[in-house]
Computed example of a mutant assay.
Amino acid sequence: MHLFPARSLAVSFLALSAAAILRAQAPSAKPSVVLVELFTSEGCSSCPPADALLRQIDHTQTSAGQLIVGISEHVTYWNSLGWSDPFSSSIYTDRQSSYGQRFNLDSVYTPQMIVNGSDQFVGSDKASLIRAIQRQPADHQPVTLNISSVNRTGNSLAVTFSAAGAIPTNGTDIIAVLADDTDQSSVQRGENSGRTLTHVAVARSLTRVATLKSAEEKTISVALPSSFQPTQHHHLILFAQALGYGRVLGADSKPI
C-alpha cells in the first residue's frame, strides 16, 4: 500500500484460494451485483498485485451466486513522480478523496478497494476482499437496476434502464461508467519502469446521470470519451449509490 504523500508501506499479499469466493457455474436467475472499485496507479509499485486481484475476480460469481463487477479507477497524484498514468483522471482522484472523507481516513492511498461503497481496505488484500464480499447480502439488493438497451448516436450512448425496489426517499444517485474490458501499458519510468502492466474494467468516464426518488424507467445520454476506440471491447456499468458516496444499492453491466 502507498499512502500519499508517504512513499512506502510494506503490505503482505495473502495467497488465498480463489475458490473461497468464486464458483465456476452461473445460476440461471440474474444474480445480484457486488461492485468492487479499485483505486490504482501505474506509478505505484504496490499496485500491480491489486490489478491482478481485480483481473482474477472481475465478472466472476461468488459461491452465493453474486456477480462481481470491477471498476479500475486510475488516480492522478502519482503522475508527477516519474510516470504519467495514461488511464488516470482527476475524476477518480476526486472520487477517492470523497470516499476518504466519508471513511474518515487520514490520507488517500493506493491501491485501495471499496466494495459496494461500504468496505474499504488495501487493494491487494484478498482476505479482506473475501470478508467484504461475504458481508454483502446474497439474496437481496435494495434497488434493482436493469439496462434494457444501449444505442450509439454520434458521440454518445442512449441508455434506457429501469430502477425498482426500495429507493430511498431522499434519492439515490445513478452513476454511469464506461470501461475498457482490458488495457495494457509498457511503463517506461517510475516505480514500475520496464514492466508491462495489464488492467481490466478500466474506467474511461464516470458520470452521475440521474438522481432518482422513485422507481421509474428512464433514458439517459452518456457521452463517449475521446479515448473510446470502436475496435476495442468496452462495457457500460450503471449503479445506484446512496447520496454522499454511501452504499451501492444496486448495479447492472452490459457490453457495448
Rank of each mutant, 00 (worst) to 15 (best):
S253V: 14
N79P: 11
Q66W: 07
T60W: 10
S227V: 11
Q101T: 07
P5G: 00
G194P: 12
V122M: 09
A251H: 03
D119I: 08
P255A: 08
V69H: 06
R95C: 02
A201E: 02
T207W: 06
S89K: 04
F4D: 05
I147K: 07
F121Q: 07
A223E: 07
V11C: 07
G154S: 08
T211V: 12
P168K: 03
Q96D: 02
R55V: 00
S128D: 11
Q25H: 13
L105H: 06
L236H: 04
A26Y: 05
T60Q: 15
N104R: 15
L3H: 09
S41R: 12
A52I: 07
I237A: 04
R247E: 14
L178M: 10
A26I: 02
Y92E: 00
A223F: 02
P49E: 09
Q61V: 03
I174T: 01
Q232A: 15
F121G: 03
I114N: 04
A210H: 07
Q232E: 10
T76K: 04
S162F: 05
E42T: 01
S8W: 13
I167W: 03
L14H: 11
H59F: 15
G100K: 09
G70L: 00
V34Y: 01
C44A: 10
N170R: 14
L249Q: 06
N116I: 04
L224Y: 03
V202N: 00
Q188A: 12
L238R: 06
Q101F: 14
D180Y: 13
G244N: 12
A251T: 03
S45W: 10
R23F: 00
S90F: 13
T231V: 09
K254Y: 11
I71N: 01
A18I: 08
M113Y: 05
R247L: 11
A176P: 00
R152Y: 08
A179L: 13
Q134R: 13
H140A: 15
V36T: 02
P31Y: 01
I167M: 09
H199A: 07
E217A: 12
T40I: 14
A24N: 13
T62N: 12
A52W: 02
P142T: 05
L197S: 05
Q188S: 14
I175H: 01
T207V: 12
F13N: 12
H233Q: 14
P86N: 06
D125W: 04
V143N: 05
L38K: 05
N151C: 09
S17D: 14
A6R: 14
A10C: 13
A158S: 14
F161L: 14
Q229K: 14
L236A: 08
I147L: 11
Q61D: 10
S227Q: 11
F13H: 10
G82A: 09
L67F: 08
A166P: 01
Q241E: 06
P225G: 02
L197N: 10
S227D: 04
A251M: 09
G154H: 06
H140K: 13
L212S: 05
L105T: 00
H234Y: 13
L67V: 01
H233C: 04
V150N: 00
T231Q: 13
S118A: 15
A20Y: 10
S17N: 12
R131M: 11
L35C: 09
S253K: 08
E42Y: 07
F103P: 09
D119C: 14
V122C: 08
A164K: 15
P137W: 05
L16N: 07
L178I: 08
R135Y: 04
C44R: 08
L157D: 02
L81N: 01
